[in-house]
């Protein structure tokens, strides 16, 4: 009985210890998450300030991109003058998938402008600068740049969604959530293509192709494709989870769908991060001395 008490006492201590360790680990993880979130915010702030130095160029690029996207509105308008529906999609539905695609890729390139640039950074030996800094390389390298024209994409998506749904706070909130989640997922997939450079050498061609496939599969109704293409769209190039499932949730919301989508996004992002981390272990510096301004 006594022995039993002792044993259970030790077990209890161990449990408390494990819980304490777990608490510490959890706290450390939360702290690291907050620190990196702060890093992303700081990069965003300074990249935006630097872009605003050339205000006219900033406005021209953002407006140019928004206008560039608006031309596609004209294309779909002409098509829907001839037919009332394409595979179950009406004009407004196509506008919603355009809004989601546009804002999603806009969000991604505003916050993580170095996505697709990683192969060049690795090949030029510019990664060394990031390795020396006390921050996670994956986050640090991607968010250190902002693509100015992406502001046009982001704003264009919001304008479209407001035109389709009007001011509907819940839909708008969901749209913001899907934009962020979809942007992170798209970034994770592009990052896998980028990261291939660690394994096979310059993968910029693959990276460019993956981006083109992702974007092009996102801007036409998914119902036009055959089953085999749809399988790719929900696995290898998951535009289904970037645009089409969010579109369905915006039309008919359900909690299971939302939680499922976020879980799937997290899995893809996790895999992308682990792939990058393993790839980074293979990186060999060329000892090139560079400066990062």
């Amino acid at each position: 009985m006594l022995m039993g008490d002792k044993k259970s006492g030790i077990q209890a201590k161990e449990k408390t210890g494990t819980r304490k360790d777990g608490d510490k680990g959890g706290r450390r993880l939360a702290l690291s998450f907050l620190q990196h979130l702060r890093l992303i915010c700081l990069y965003f702030k300074y990249n935006l300030l630097s872009a605003m130095e050339y205000r006219v160029s900033f406005i021209l690029q953002a407006l140019g991109m928004a206008l560039n996207n608006a031309f596609f509105l004209f294309f779909w308008w002409v098509i829907f003058q001839k037919v009332s529906s394409i595979g179950g999609y009406g004009f407004k539905d196509v506008m919603v998938i355009w809004a989601l695609s546009s804002s999603t890729y806009g969000f991604l390139h505003i916050l993580f402008g170095n996505v697709r640039e990683l192969p060049r950074i690795i090949m030029n030996g510019e990664l060394d600068t990031y390795l020396l800094q006390p921050k996670n390389v994956y986050v640090n390298v991607y968010c250190s740049r902002m693509i100015v024209s992406a502001w046009g994409d982001l704003v264009y998506g919001f304008v479209l969604i407001l035109l389709v749904y009007g001011f509907a706070p819940l839909k708008l909130l969901l749209f913001i959530l899907f934009t962020a989640a979809g942007g992170l997922l798209a970034g994770a997939i592009m990052s896998v293509a980028d990261t291939l450079t660690f394994y096979i050498g310059n993968s910029s061609g693959i990276s460019r192709l993956v981006t083109e496939f992702l974007i092009n599969f996102s801007i036409y109704p998914d119902s036009i494709y055959r089953q085999s293409v749809k399988v790719i769209m929900y696995t290898l190039l998951p535009t289904g989870f970037i645009v089409f499932l969010p579109f369905r949730l915006l039309s008919a919301f359900n909690w299971y769908g939302l939680l499922g989508l976020l879980a799937i996004d997290a899995v893809y992002i996790g895999i992308s991060y682990l792939f990058f981390k393993r790839g980074l272990e293979r990186y060999e510096s060329g000892n090139l001395i560079t400066t990062k301004l």
Partner: peptide
């Protein structure tokens, strides 16, 4: 300073 906007517009036209 930046003429990409002109290029996109002409391209889309």
């Amino acid at each position: 300073e930046d003429n990409s906007a002109f290029y996109w517009i002409v391209q889309k036209l």
